[in-house]
């Protein structure tokens, strides 16, 4: 009798154990596809049609549709991010307005594949308003690495999300527009389309003027700063360096921050 009881118990335990184990098989997590796949869209922009790839965290990569087409974009994306890429049912929120040039925060960006310095450079660049330009040195300082001017150029030359991080608004300290990852003519065209007075800035640079100051506000700005553009010719003073302007009694603008955070 005792033996029988034990046998029954053991069989019962086994049956419950196996049933319990069978119950441990589970479905895939609902969020798995979003965690694994990036999704692409083709949308219009100031550079013509572009492809954009976005993860669940935001837009990760953007390139002109150009000649390489979708195959070229997919290959470039795979080489850089190594994540499967499939078509998106609709563009990520905020992407279309941002590419149409609407002011605002723009779409969320996924910059997780970048280093801290790269992210800092892109964050600083993203704060430059439309129609304005800042030198590479300004970006380096805003990114917390004042000495890394050349490195800023390298980072922006690989900008994964041009237009959304407006690297076309970063120019050389001597007033030349400098290079662009899609060519200098595209950079100039984008800046003109945003309303920047490219010729006026070039004229000033030729005369050695890189900062403009107002004797009514006693503030000194970058020439493309919204505040500098309001200065009437009568009250306008040009300077080649910020030091000269400061010695002449002008205070660095708090909007365009020609002297950085200090």
């Amino acid at each position: 009798m005792t033996t029988d009881d034990t046998t029954t118990d053991t069989t019962d335990v086994d049956a419950r154990l196996l049933a319990g184990l069978a119950g441990l098989a589970t479905e895939a997590p609902a969020g798995l596809p979003d965690a694994v796949f990036a999704r692409w869209v083709r949308v219009p922009s100031g550079l013509g049609d572009v492809y954009a790839a976005a993860t669940a965290h935001g837009v990760q990569f953007l390139r002109p549709a150009g000649d390489a087409g979708l195959a070229g974009f997919t290959a470039a994306y795979r080489a850089r991010f190594a994540r499967p890429l499939v078509a998106a049912p609709r563009p990520p929120a905020g992407l279309l307005p941002a590419l149409r040039g609407r002011p605002g925060r723009g779409p969320a960006l996924d910059l997780t594949a970048l280093t801290g310095f790269e992210r800092a450079v892109l964050d600083a660049t993203r704060r430059i308003p439309a129609g304005q330009a800042r030198p590479y040195g300004w970006v380096a300082r805003e990114a917390g690495s004042p000495g890394a001017v050349r490195a800023v150029g390298s980072v922006l030359a690989r900008n994964p999300v041009p237009l959304l991080v407006p690297c076309h608004r970063v120019v050389r300290a001597d007033g030349a527009l400098g290079g662009y990852l899609f060519g200098a003519p595209e950079k100039e065209r984008l800046l003109r389309a945003e309303g920047m007075d490219v010729d006026g800035v070039a004229d000033l640079a030729r005369r050695g003027v890189r900062y403009l100051a107002s004797d009514t506000t006693t503030v000194v700005c970058f020439p493309t700063c919204r505040d500098a553009r309001r200065i009437t010719p009568r009250h306008r003073h040009g300077f080649g360096t910020l030091d000269e302007a400061v010695r002449a009694g002008f205070r660095p603008c708090r909007t365009c921050r020609p002297a950085g955070a200090a």
Partner: peptide, 21 residues
């Protein structure tokens, strides 16, 4: 490869997740 990987995740997502648990 990319579209096909959708099949991989659909087909084997549950098995991989069960072992991951």
């Amino acid at each position: 490869l990319d579209a096909g990987y959708g099949e991989v995740v659909r087909e084997y997502g549950g098995v991989v997740h069960s072992v991951a648990r």
